[in-house]
Design a protein around this nucleic acid. Structure first.
Lengths: 156, 156
DNA sequence: CCAAATTCAATTGTGCCCAATTAAATTATA
DNA sequence: TATAATTTAATTGGGCACAATTGAATTTGG
């Protein structure tokens, strides 16, 4: 008996566990792809001595020039427990400066230094280098971006 | 056509940095969504005293019953540096057992204990609970899964 | 058979991530 | 205006992730 595979019986036995599989849950490939792509960034980012998280912070600063930690956290979906040490590390490298707001001393303002600003030029081609590692059609790229942004919005 | 903003000018000034923005790179939302969804798992998994990584390992074992560390790493895209402590932790909880293969003593076999097997019943409804937090249409779910699996395949 | 290469897991060190707590500063309220 | 509530970062501790190294066991080539 029991020649059916465990995979396709939803009526009894192991069938009730059908959804409890790696292949039937979106979160696992999401998680794995995310890590795999960050892995592709690593050798490229090492050339400018940045980790992926540090690179995310720098991208914000290249657009905003000055932001506080709270705003940065909201933009990157990261909290102070993650950002505090990352920002100290960027300060140690001389890429950002940290200073308290005059109006509200609880607020820590993060600004680009000249060196941090100059790094933008060196980072310029990174998105192109990464895009070479990821083979998706323009349609797939657009579709993926749309769905991910939709999911991200749901977490707010 | 002359009403374009600084954001889409590829011809001068900051234009050459256009791709170097959070909004124009897929990796960032991928990374953020992955973390946000894992965050949704946390309170649910806490009820059965598992972390997300431990849950992934258990899902493999509920299907395979016995696997070695190398195979597990290939399935989950994780290396021994991550898995070794996770597996020890699962052993401490009494959910898995670790034993060397008789034929090749380099190989560590991970097996479900009775308690680990029984946990499956408690975990049964987790995929359903998570799906309630994620609002995607069936089409979007299918599309996302297809694209993620394609990307995952490219890393091999 | 034996040395070299390979395979597999464990260890070590660095860097996130996050929950929970703390501490400092500001704002709102009785 | 005291004081209670809120806001904002920093700190702490636990658990991954991963690169690099190590060491043990097996396989392979001469």
């Amino acid at each position: 008996m029991m020649s059916r595979t465990a995979d396709d019986d939803m009526t009894k036995g192991t069938g009730s566990y059908e959804q409890l599989k790696l292949g039937n849950q979106l979160c696992f490939p999401l998680y794995a792809v995310s890590r795999e792509i960050i892995k592709k960034y690593r050798p490229i980012l090492r050339k400018i001595d940045l980790t992926y998280t540090q690179y995310l912070v720098m991208m914000v600063l290249w657009e905003e020039d000055t932001v506080n930690v709270k705003k940065l956290g909201e933009m990157l979906f990261l909290d102070s427990g993650t950002l505090s040490p990352v920002l100290k590390s960027l300060e140690t490298k001389g890429l950002v400066s940290r200073s308290r707001s005059d109006e509200d001393e609880r607020i820590l303002l993060i600004s680009l230094t000249d060196r941090g600003c100059a790094l933008r030029e060196k980072a310029k081609d990174i998105p192109f280098e990464i895009s070479k590692c990821v083979e998706l059609s323009p349609e797939e790229t657009y579709e993926l971006g749309t769905i991910l942004r939709k999911l991200l919005k749901q977490t707010r």
